[in-house]
């Protein structure tokens, strides 16, 4: 889950962090860019996930 003290947007719903303190369920990958709040293209694999923001690039995590 995005850290609301650092991220400008919630990565679960895309709202500005001042409106949402972080609502993403622990089993959801991020769907919104924490920097700009735009919806990302997300691919989930058996052992991780990859999310791409058009502006801010790719974020990859092993789970």
């Amino acid at each position: 889950m995005s850290n609301p003290t650092e991220a400008a947007h919630c990565d679960g719903c895309g709202k500005p962090s001042i409106e949402c303190a972080g609502c993403r369920w622990e089993y959801d990958p991020p769907h919104y860019c924490a920097q700009c709040g735009v919806r990302m293209a997300v691919n989930v694999s058996p052992n991780g996930w990859k999310a791409r923001c058009k502006t801010h690039g790719e974020l990859t995590r092993l789970t």
Partner: peptide, 13 residues
């Protein structure tokens, strides 16, 4: 099913 699902995550393998 071990690991993640199609659009969301599973618990750790």
């Amino acid at each position: 099913i071990i690991g993640n699902y199609l659009t969301y995550l599973g618990r750790s393998p």
